[in-house]
Computed example of a mutant assay.
Amino acid sequence: MIQIGSVQIATNIFLAPLSGCSDLAFRLIARECGAKFCFFEMVDAHSLLRPHPKRFDILRSSEQDRPIAGQLVGEKPELIRDAAQILIEQVPIMFLDINSACPVKKVVKKGAGAALLQEPQKLVQILSLLASSLSIPITVKLRIGYYQVDMPALLDLVKSCEANGASAIFLHGRTRDQLYSGDVNYEAIRAVKAAVTIPVFGSGNILTPELAKQMFDLTGCDGILVARGAFGNPWISRDIAYYLEHGTLPPEISFEERKSVLKRHLAYLREFRMCSPAGKIGFMRKVTLWYLKGFPNASRQRGLINTIPDYETLIRFIDEHMPQ
């Protein structure tokens, strides 16, 4: 159980808002395999304010897709507030996160995501406006720095975030320049945890239950945010919880079960993913490659999978070429 503002959540293992990946199909499979809390994909605040017929596709959900939180990325306080009000009207999120961590060039160029690390006063202004305008808790996703780690500046920032309405901090233990490579700075996360009284979630390299425990042990964080570790491994949240409780890994997932879950994931994509036929099969191939890791002859199968033209052929390939 963890408290974020006025909201109590029954787990401290959250599935991250993975842009372009953690769609409804991804979340439903993760929940069926043990994930107890998920985010929508990161949503661009601009996209919710444009009168486009498909602007709410990214917020597609279902009764089984609960509990859930949202995350917005943007660069202007009023813009984010207006988008947040629309988002809250569309979906029953438990809290709203502001992304100040995305390192992608096209996001940073607009002054959003990790670019806000270089404009801390603007970030604090965003949090203050949202906390005073909205009826749900506001949280913030940060990195430990932009070019490098400046601990006094980082600690000043997180204290200001707390003072201006943030109910929790999600902290990726790398700088923006590191992107998703290099070592995670556990000491920086530990220092942030010691500097604030609100919950701090550690993020970065949570790829296995052992690495999840390492994040808890080395930082003292209150919770963790699982991201890339869930690609092709929707059981990871369940496995982390088991390892933290028992100190041993749960039984390994069989190839047969992996195949079964993969096919169910693809069926959800066929039903729920909103894009062109070419885009849909392309994404299905990508998801299949996630699950392929660990299968015999995986390297040989990758090239074949990338040539598959449609859903039916992909399912036949899985049945015929991925062993039980």
Rank of each mutant, 00 (worst) to 15 (best):
A163R: 11
A163T: 10
N164G: 00
N164V: 02
N164W: 00
N164E: 03
G165W: 01
G165E: 00
A166Y: 09
A166M: 07
S167K: 05
S167I: 09
I169F: 05
I169C: 10
I169N: 08
I169E: 07
F170R: 10
F170N: 09
F170V: 15
F170D: 07
F170I: 14
F170K: 07
L171M: 14
H172N: 02
G173H: 01
G173E: 01
R174K: 04
R174D: 01
T175N: 11
T175F: 05
T175A: 06
T175V: 09
T175M: 08
R176A: 03
R176H: 07
D177W: 13
D177Y: 11
D177Q: 15
D177T: 15
Q178V: 07
L179K: 12
L179H: 12
L179N: 05
Y180L: 01
Y180G: 04
Y180S: 04
S181F: 12
S181C: 09
S181R: 13
S181H: 10
G182M: 06
G182T: 03
G182L: 09
G182K: 05
D183Y: 12
D183Q: 13
V184T: 04
V184Y: 02
V184R: 07
V184N: 06
V184H: 03
N185V: 06
N185C: 02
Y186R: 10
Y186E: 09
E187M: 13
A188V: 05
I189R: 14
A191I: 08
A191N: 09
V192I: 09
V192W: 02
K193I: 13
K193C: 09
A194R: 15
A194E: 15
A194T: 14
A194Q: 15
A194K: 14
A194C: 10
A195S: 14
A195Q: 13
V196A: 11
V196E: 15
I198Y: 03
I198P: 01
P199W: 12
P199C: 14
V200G: 13
V200M: 11
V200K: 08
V200N: 05
G202T: 00
G202Y: 03
G202F: 05
G202Q: 03
S203Y: 00
S203N: 15
N205M: 13
I206F: 02
I206V: 06
I206N: 05
I206E: 09
I206R: 06
I206H: 00
L207P: 07
T208N: 14
T208L: 13
T208A: 11
T208F: 05
T208D: 11
P209E: 00
P209I: 03
P209F: 02
P209Q: 05
